[in-house]
């Protein structure tokens, strides 16, 4: 099988007062060197899916397979070396870095993980350079950096582990608008340089369009539309995708209000449309 990651019929449920099905029979694949974007609005299950991919969430049913091996739950035990090539970048840059350890040392932990797996060693400075930060930052602490710089360090640390699957859960939404697009673009380039697959989760279709080869649109735990990014952006088929794209305000200075859906969460958004899936 050529797929790097295969998610098949994944179901994730949360049991509280009621059972909430966050992810409802979702299947997707990522090939090496491919950027797959997962978009959708808050609560659609995209973050749960991302967490399940790295093993931070226990599936109710279905499977997450990485290089033909099921991804184990990230329990108390030490993670096996074969799975340290799956790395993750989190949404909140403030809690992504250990506040009491220098930046360089944290990147070194990533390097160590790569070396333990038999990969090539490297220096923390190289990774800082690659994410566009000055190498002198190795001796800094997280609280001395801005949010954007922290997120870059978190990306550098993940990449230093030489992953071949990088999962990024809303990695840019906490950043200033002016650096969002450039960080997203940087992630694409670095992942592709390393020959890794990138699962990029975002609610921002405008940015996803620029960096993803394929896009998956989720609504209420289900995939409503998926396929080549340009097709989805230029010619959305599913009513939800259409509403999502037309609701994005265009920064063109023309004072045009984006189209608002007639009702909150109309029924038609929940339709299953086979023709909207796996569009090529």
């Amino acid at each position: 099988m050529s797929e790097l990651l295969e998610v098949s019929d994944l179901v994730i449920e949360y049991h509280g007062a009621t059972v909430v099905r966050a992810v409802d029979e979702v299947s997707l694949t990522i090939a090496p060197g491919e950027v797959l974007a997962l978009v959708g609005e808050s609560g659609c299950g995209k973050s749960s899916l991302a967490r399940a991919v790295v093993g931070m969430e226990k599936p109710r049913s279905g499977a997450v397979t990485y290089r033909d091996a099921e991804v184990p739950l990230l329990g108390v035990r030490r993670r096996k070396a074969q799975f340290t090539s799956i790395q993750m970048v989190f949404q909140d840059p403030n809690s992504s870095l250990n506040p009491r350890i220098r930046v360089g040392q944290q990147i070194s932990e990533g390097i160590r993980a790569a070396v333990e797996r038999g990969a090539e060693g490297s220096q923390p400075e190289e990774w800082l350079e690659r994410v566009g930060l000055p190498t002198t930052m190795v001796s800094r602490y997280a609280h001395e950096l801005s949010g954007g710089q922290r997120q870059r360090v978190a990306i550098a640390r993940a990449l230093a582990a030489r992953p071949d699957l990088l999962v990024a859960d809303e990695p840019i939404s906490a950043l200033d608008a002016s650096s969002q697009a450039s960080v997203a673009d940087m992630m694409r380039k670095l992942a592709l340089d390393a020959g890794a697959g990138l699962l990029f989760i975002s609610h921002d279709l405008a940015i996803v369009r620029l960096i993803a080869d394929r896009t998956v649109v989720m609504y209420r735990g289900k995939i409503v539309e998926s396929g080549v990014s340009d097709l989805i952006w230029n010619d959305p088929v599913h009513p939800y995708t259409r509403a999502l794209i037309s609701a994005i305000p265009e920064p063109d200075g023309k004072g045009i209000l984006p189209a608002a859906p007639a009702a909150e969460a109309p029924e038609e958004w929940r339709l299953t449309m086979p023709e909207a899936l796996n569009r090529v």
């Binding site: 609701a247 984006p258 608002a260 859906p261």
Partner: peptide, 9 residues
């Protein structure tokens, strides 16, 4: 969310 944002705008 962006679809909700449109309504508020």
């Amino acid at each position: 969310d962006v679809t909700v944002q449109a309504g508020i705008l």
